[in-house]
Write a protein that binds this DNA or RNA. Sequence first.
DNA 1: CTGAAAGCGCTAACAT
DNA 2: ATGTTAGCGCTTTCAG
Lengths: 358, 358
Amino acid sequence: MCWPSGLSINFVSLALNKDQRRPMTTIYDIAKAAGVTATTVSNVLSGKGSVSATTRARVLKYVRELEYQPNLIARSLIKGRTGVIGLILSGVDNPFYAETTTIVERLAYAVGLRVFTTTLSGDDQVGQKMLKDLILRQVDGILITTWTEKQIMHVIAAMQLPVVHCFWEDDKPASTPYVAIDLESGGLLAGQHLLSLGHRHLGVITHLNRDGSSAHEQRVAGFQNALSQHGLSLDPILLQDGRSSMEGGKTAAHKLLTQPNPPTAIFATNDAMAIGAMAAAWELGLQIPRDLSIIGLDDVTLAKYVVPPLTTVAIDKEAILSHAIKLLLDAINGQEAVSPPPLSPTLVIRGSTGPCLQ
Amino acid sequence: MCWPSGLSINFVSLALNKDQRRPMTTIYDIAKAAGVTATTVSNVLSGKGSVSATTRARVLKYVRELEYQPNLIARSLIKGRTGVIGLILSGVDNPFYAETTTIVERLAYAVGLRVFTTTLSGDDQVGQKMLKDLILRQVDGILITTWTEKQIMHVIAAMQLPVVHCFWEDDKPASTPYVAIDLESGGLLAGQHLLSLGHRHLGVITHLNRDGSSAHEQRVAGFQNALSQHGLSLDPILLQDGRSSMEGGKTAAHKLLTQPNPPTAIFATNDAMAIGAMAAAWELGLQIPRDLSIIGLDDVTLAKYVVPPLTTVAIDKEAILSHAIKLLLDAINGQEAVSPPPLSPTLVIRGSTGPCLQ
DNA sequence: CTGAAAGCGCTAACAT
DNA sequence: ATGTTAGCGCTTTCAG
């Protein structure tokens, strides 16, 4: 064989097919070695039944020697449980979702669950197929964190598969457990903060297209409540769609800021859009917070590092997801899953908001 | 039962245990309904064997009526293949990894593979256990994108499990397929760019602790090559550890910039650290790029949105991961997995670098 | 305390 | 073209 220069044999690996690889040692292998039956080995391993100390020791010895590893697939088949859950996420360029995955994976593993993450990129078919695939793979439950096609919800419901919602409750069947956040008070907090800084001409960037959502509507509603308290109301032209993404937030901010009478402060209903808005402000030569205040909602890790650091309404992802996992586990175990009362967000003041100077 | 005010019965879900739920319809159910045997149903479904058009139609009819869904767990058990791969990631606050997961999930699914993401948070034990769990769950292969304990590598090697490395090749057994990037030329590009802007006093933020890595060393080496070409060399005090994270980058930049003779430009060996460095500069009242130029490496999505937009050396994640998945698939199928020649990064000039004004 | 037998849902020889 | 048999690796009654 002839190699392009620079490529050595190191760069080649003649892999072994599954059948060519050394077969895993099974429970039978160690049963034979220990001179007992598979049942006994199983009992030793599971701690059920009762086995004499002697045989237990002998079995364990071979377990070690033969480096036995239980085959979780076989176990899943017989138990009717895989110990895997599905996680449904949105695929927009939003750091929030990235953080969600990591947290969920860790929390789930802590209770013995692995997760298949399914990222829905818009309304494509791929995501929907991936979701069905989750069912074929016998996941024990599903955690939904974003808008999901009604049809899919029905399939899941028909399967009577345990489901928990969080961050997003649109089109959720009434009976589905849900970990709620008081998003309306989140919007209120944002509004009050801006108002207290003297801003009176306020813009909003939110997510409002058809698959958009009460989750964002609530934030806006809370914001409007704050305005009402000051006898103000939101000018519809100052409410723009940012599609939940950084890019969308940037575009929306452009529209807002190039109007004849631009706002002096903007509430973006999530941090991704807020960060996009900051980028737009920079392009327009606006300095934050001198010329424009921006407040987000979520408190993603990144918020601390953007310039200037983003003032935002923080939601406790960790707490919410931890609740969600617990709920899902209860549902999987056939226990009553009681949704907790809504969690309250908190205001985190950093550098992207300041007094109104106009 | 008594409910806190505001909570309605909607918030409760009495879940069904697995055993209580309607059992899935199996291949036998539809065999019985269609008056054939399970084998025939299997043949119809797989398209193997041969079945008369009539029975095929009849079987298919019941498949639809009874809403048959194949149980992939059972299939996995008999096939000795799960169609699942493991993905090993680092858990630092680096947007790069988030993007990696999403891309891998999509690319993998396109070739019929699902992925179990395993985030290694430092050198904790949890990550290592999760990794072993991957094996118990019979993943078909593993894609490693970050530093991994040698011991684990040995376990995997012992299992003769297909493995592919990318982005990171430290401690990689020589025979493991690897998708390489020419990181050294990446560092060179960064250095040349800074030099061409007139900067002569340069700082570097990189990842250098023990589990750090040739992956970052290469970047620094390339950078130093650029310096050498100009008869310059890197002052060791201007090389700081940023631990690959935004926080680390920020801390490192602080150290760099508070020195008696601070650099006029900084090369951070990844975008996360570069973004952290930008935050540090802001805190110190330095304006970018007027007072300080910063260049990163990776080109994460976020780079376009930070203020000012980050100049960086882009690596084509999509291409690399696509190669990696292909390699892994080859390895799984027992085919020769030939590592491609190293891919070249490219310079993307945005707003965080400018002429040296001192 | 240990073993025999059955079966989870599916597929793959090997008949017929 | 269809059916029979056996088995993937494990657990779970139920006997002994």
